[in-house]
């Protein structure tokens, strides 16, 4: 199988490492070669963060370059807009509509662009936008945004639902398991 590329983007602290861990576990059980890359350190402090997930018969590069991503999963709307150039023609952006203001917007040095979903669609990009924060709160915690979006992403792949659930069981602490399963289901069915 040709290598598939998923980029997970968001704001440092939103839980992209857990999401990539979950995807890694899931894809390993499907027998693929996999690479998952992330950057630790300074950029994590509230900055823009990116994780690359690649899988197929044989994966070489650990990163995804411009024009290569089959899917961009964004935990925050501005971050989806930031990385559109990495989407492969015909690829899909799955994004949270939640807005988190970056420091230049907070200080008034820049403004948060309006109507980003419409602007992305006007460029011919396929965008699947959901209010993942609302669904996460409905599931029991605003921190479950990452799992809501994994639920949404799961619709894009023909993989058994029980394998996704097993991957969740192996990735989150026992006491938050039910909450996360609910978050996943809400995202998948939204």
């Amino acid at each position: 199988m040709e290598t598939k590329n998923i980029m997970i983007v968001g704001v440092g602290g939103q839980g992209s490492l857990l999401a990539s861990k979950l995807l890694g576990r899931l894809l390993l059980t499907q027998g693929y070669d996999i690479k998952v890359s992330e950057v630790h350190g300074m950029s994590q402090r509230g900055g823009s963060v990116v994780t690359y997930v690649r899988f197929g018969d044989k994966v070489y590069s650990p990163i995804i370059d411009k024009g290569e991503a089959d899917y961009i999963v964004s935990f925050e709307l501005l971050e989806a807009a930031r990385w559109t150039e990495y989407l492969k023609p015909g690829g899909t952006i799955v994004t949270n509509t939640q807005q988190i203001n970056p420091m230049p917007v907070i200080t008034g040095a820049a403004s948060y662009p309006e109507d980003l979903v419409a602007k992305m669609e006007a460029k011919g990009l396929k965008v699947d936008a959901i209010d993942a924060l609302k669904l996460a709160e409905e599931a029991g915690s605003p921190k479950a945004v990452n799992i809501v979006l994994m639920g949404r992403l799961s619709k894009c792949f023909d993989l058994p639902l029980e394998d996704w659930m097993t991957a969740i069981e192996h990735s989150v602490p026992e006491k938050f398991l039910e909450l996360n399963k609910k978050a996943f289901t809400l995202g998948r069915n939204a």
């Binding site: 509230g46 823009s48 024009g67 290569e68 559109t84 023609p89």
Partner: peptide, 20 residues
Amino acid sequence: PVPAGTALDEPIPPRPPVMC
């Protein structure tokens, strides 16, 4: 051949790391 994607026309404000 170099793959290419589509960027939006307007500038996207940067999101530098900040003190928590």
